[in-house]
Design a protein around this nucleic acid. Structure first.
Length: 396
RNA sequence: GGGCGGUUUCCCGAGUGGCCAAAGGGGACAGACUGUAAAUCUGCUAGCGAUGCUUUCGGUGGUUCGAAUCCACCACCGCCCA
């Protein structure tokens, strides 16, 4: 059902279109993380549309424990539930195995973990995860995987990726069965497999070969940005992305900083998601092309510039750093909301700039310039960030 | 005029002779956060030539080896009686 079409390339970086029943996504794309069916910080589906986001990500585990995937199915599925008609990717709950489960409770059948809400035991395996995702009716379902710690031993990782590969077969079987049923919310639901193997490149490659034997709709690289260095992450991508299908989208899960994303696009990645723009936004940490600002800092008390000069987001067009800082310090929800909206715009717009640079054939120089500007060690010393510079510019 | 209670480091507030530069909270300041148990968490908040020294618990003086803590007087605040 899905169609992945490459529009243009520069080296390994590529601009492609991914057609789904919920619309076409231009890649490289950033998926806006709305774990419980909403981007935290008071961001509505309206807001997401207004700032031009293409796709949203929600979580299987969280929606299962509250309010329940069966309820959402009865209400017509997640798209209808959250009044969002563009694509949705649901994460499988695999990451919650990493963050919530006792590692000793991981069995061949699946994982038992305790609800973070009331502590009750929850069992989730490949079939359960896919059933929930089918009930939600997301555009793309993710395979149920285990995300081993970056410090896991090679022996542990080997066992884990073998199990994740076996789980993938079960996910595929379950989804095929559910997609063929009459009462399925989205009978065209897609499935992405997830590559694991920690920082062991040979295990990564072995696992990639194994999971690509199944004809899935896309492939993710998981288990990165969980404690290893950026260099290790880029090294894994250099090794494993070439073993993922060229005619299908590649998704780097949970990543990352603007620089991480640029480096990963350069290594052939199409899909990204990260809590940074929303979580950091809630904490007053906002992104610009010249590094981040921590708006709660005293230096912005009387700074009436927008977060970033020239930014076309609805926040920068109207509000000052000083006002947003005031809202954050006063504990007003509007402060978190404005920061989050700016950050989401920044991330989504960054992806557009990336696609344009690839289309224009200027990717290599664009990338170099963008990474240089984003480098805070360099940027914090430039005059453009000093209030005195701004005063002079304004005076003209 | 009389009686009682109070005055603590930016704020509130604990502390009634040494373990007190002084609990706890707030505020301020700074940092962290990568498929969201996160509008959260952590650090820090007298000064300095810094394993020590100096200044600080309303003010002044006293008792004591030693005082935020005990005594005297003074100032101010609150309540009650005239």
């Amino acid at each position: 059902m899905a169609e992945y079409k490459i529009i243009s390339t520069c080296g390994r970086a590529k601009h492609a279109e991914f057609k789904t029943v919920h619309g076409t996504v231009q890649t490289p794309v950033f998926m806006n993380v709305g774990t419980v069916g909403a981007v935290k910080g008071g961001v509505s589906s309206d807001d997401l549309e207004r700032i031009g986001t293409q796709i949203e990500l929600s979580n299987t585990y969280h929606l299962h424990v509250r309010t329940g995937d069966e309820v959402i199915k009865r209400l017509g599925g997640l798209h209808k539930f959250m009044a969002w008609n563009r694509p949705i990717l649901t994460d499988s709950g695999g990451f919650q195995v990493f963050s919530l489960a006792d590692i000793r409770k991981i069995k061949e059948e699946g994982v038992t973990f305790r609800s973070h809400i009331d502590g009750h035991k929850i069992f989730m395996g490949p079939e359960e995860s896919i059933q929930i995702q089918s009930n939600l009716g997301s555009t793309i379902a993710m395979a149920f995987d285990e995300c081993p710690s970056s410090v896991a031993t090679r022996e542990y990782v080997k066992d884990s990726i073998d199990r994740t590969a076996r789980w993938l077969v079960r996910c595929k079987k379950k989804l095929d069965e559910l997609n063929s049923r009459e009462d399925t919310v989205n009978p065209h639901q897609l499935l992405f497999g997830i590559n694991q193997g920690a920082v062991y490149n040979d295990l990564r490659i072995e696992h990639a070969k194994r999971i690509t034997e199944l004809d899935l709709d896309g492939y993710a690289v998981g288990g990165l940005a969980v404690g290893e260095t950026h260099e290790q992450m880029y090294d894994v991508l250099d090794h494993v992305v070439p073993y993922l299908p060229k005619n299908k989208p590649t998704y780097l899960m949970g990543v990352g900083t603007p620089a991480n994303i640029i480096e990963a696009v350069d290594r052939g990645v199409d899909f990204f998601d990260c809590v940074y723009p929303s979580r950091n936004g809630r904490h007053g940490h906002v992104y610009t092309h010249h590094g981040h600002l921590n708006l709660v800092n005293a230096q912005y008390t009387e700074d009436d510039r927008p977060i970033e000069e020239g930014c076309q987001c609805p926040v920068c067009k109207r509000y000052s750093r000083a006002y947003i800082r005031h809202l954050l310090k006063a504990g007003e929800m509007l402060g978190l909301r404005l920061c989050t909206i700016h950050n989401l715009y920044f991330y989504n717009h960054l992806m557009e700039e990336i696609r344009n640079a690839i289309d224009d054939g200027t990717w290599d120089t664009w990338k170099k310039d963008a990474l240089y500007a984003l480098d805070e060690e360099h940027e914090k010393h430039t005059v453009m960030h000093q209030p005195a510079y701004y005063q002079k510019v304004r005076a003209k």
